[in-house]
Design a protein around this nucleic acid. Structure first.
Length: 423
RNA sequence: GGAGAGAUGGCUGAGUGGUCGAUAGCGGCGGUCUUGAAAACCGUUGAGGGCGUGAGUUCUCCGGGGGUUCGAAUCCCUCUCUCUCCGCCA
């Protein structure tokens, strides 16, 4: 949620920047400004009335102490009248306040000035490529065939136990998965991140604070009986650790990491991208989350991108870094870099990470602030997060790119984790 | 799942209808003393909003929501959470 103050103060800039996200905010902002004005006026009136009532209540207290019963009764009447008037104003105030909130929630985050205009993923900007695409024989396989051939992942078994999109990992398939989790966590810890194992289900407040509610309700599994949501990403519980927190300046930057399974309903997903591991309902991911001072968030974004890059490099995967255009960015992001790895069996680039700076958009809802050392003022922090990394597509690319006559070669860096060099 | 107790400021913990945004202790910050530090002493120390250039002023907040009252941290209803005992259990 954009802070109201900055919307009012930089009205034109907000409108212009949101255009990059193909969002016309003109009307909403006009409405917000006028509602805010009405709200303030009402609040002023209500405050004054309440001040008067408080005054009277105090007087009555003193009168009764002094035994002036009759005097007190007379003043009570006055207060009752004021109270009715206040109630009347409040009944106007509440819906206005709600409407204002409802409108604020509709505004996406402002894209950074570096974000290119554009409508779809085709307008994204490839900022860097690395690694080399493998040259595979004609009879190369896609990962779902490799998984079957070596009995690594059983998709049908998942259908039986749960349903489509819940694969079962077996033997070296399972061990490879576990190796990757450990490797990613170790790398994050080396880079200064603190590991957490958070809950996999969250309550409504938590889901709201990171923006999954009301926006992406359909994406989450919901446990009706207890009112819990299954997390779609570790970002949700990890970031919420810092909900309603006021940090000291020297506590920043905060750097968290955590491995969790992620659960996504993917309602409406269909067609070509859903085969094998490409899009599933439950998958494993190591997430990194950072909290910084506003002036340091873009430096941190660069560091996070560099960290993720080092991971795909160590795994010897061909990759490219993509800067998302306004039209392809998420609602909450100000600047996003996606990482894609080339999966040679399918001849496809697969998105394996998305690293974003949310600036103060999330902090505003989280009420995550810091107290600066010199000026005593409290200011909203900036939050960032990224996958480092998401397993299934990494597994897909590793299986596909490393297929040889003798079997699937495990990248050197992973061997200490897997305990085998070949599948 | 059953029975009971509780939720107060960074923490501990008072407060059961009238200057209570809240006693006290600890912690934090500033100062005196000291070569420096500790101790001791003095002072200061919650969050959010409105109005005001400012000093300031005012409103709201004692787990969440609702109610009673001129007036509520204090009474009533409801929800959530925590603790203790019993049951079940990795």
């Amino acid at each position: 949620m954009l802070p109201l103050k900055s919307i009012i103060e930089n009205k034109q800039e907000v409108i212009n920047r949101l255009k990059v996200k193909n969002f016309d905010a003109t009307e909403i902002i006009e409405k917000i400004i006028s509602l805010d004005q009405t709200k303030r006026n009402l609040q002023k009136e209500i405050d004054n009335l309440r001040a008067e009532q408080n005054q009277i209540a105090k007087q009555i207290g003193i009168m009764l102490k002094n035994g002036n019963q009759s005097e007190a009764v007379a003043v009570k009447q006055k207060s009752t009248e004021l109270k009715e008037k206040t109630k009347e104003l409040e009944s106007k105030f509440v819906p206005i306040d709600k409407e204002l909130d409802g409108l604020l929630v509709l505004l996406p985050n402002m894209p950074n000035e570096r974000v290119p205009a554009g409508k779809t993923a085709d307008d994204n900007e490839i900022v860097k490529s690395g690694g080399e695409k493998p040259s595979l024989p004609e009879n190369k396989l896609a990962h779902w065939d490799i998984a079957k051939k070596f009995n690594l992942i059983d998709f049908e078994l998942g259908n039986k136990i749960t349903g489509a999109g819940f694969p079962v990992y077996i033997n070296k398939g399972a061990r490879l998965q576990r190796a990757l989790i450990s490797f990613f966590l170790d790398e994050a810890i080396k880079a200064g991140f603190t590991e957490y194992i958070p809950p996999l289900m969250v309550n409504e407040n938590t889901a709201y604070a990171t923006g999954q509610l009301p926006d992406k309700e359909a994406q989450m599994y919901f446990i009706q009986k207890d009112n819990f949501y299954m997390i779609p990403t570790a970002e949700v519980p990890l970031t919420n650790i810092y909900r309603d927190v006021i940090l000291e300046e020297e506590q920043m930057p905060v750097k968290l990491t955590g491995y969790t399974p992620c659960f996504r309903r993917e309602a409406g997903a269909y067609g070509k991208d859903v085969r094998g591991l490409n899009r599933i309902h439950q998958f494993d991911k190591v997430e990194i989350v950072c909290i910084t001072k506003p002036e340091e968030s873009y430096k941190m974004l660069d560091a996070m991108v560099a960290h993720v890059e080092s991971l795909v490099q160590k795994l010897e995967l061909p990759y490219r870094i993509v800067k998302l255009c306004g039209g392809d960015m998420s609602f909450t992001s100000a600047l996003t870099f996606d990482f894609e790895v080339f999966s040679a069996g399918q001849d496809k680039w697969l998105e394996v990470s998305s690293v974003s700076n949310f600036e103060n958009f999330q902090s505003n809802r989280l009420k995550l602030r810091y107290k600066s050392k010199n000026q005593k003022q409290k200011e909203l922090c900036h939050t960032l997060n990224g996958s480092a990394l998401a397993m299934p597509r990494i597994v897909a690319a590793l299986l596909e790119n490393n297929q040889t006559e003798k079997g699937i070669k495990i990248p050197k860096i992973l061997v200490p984790y897997t305990g085998f060099e070949l599948i």
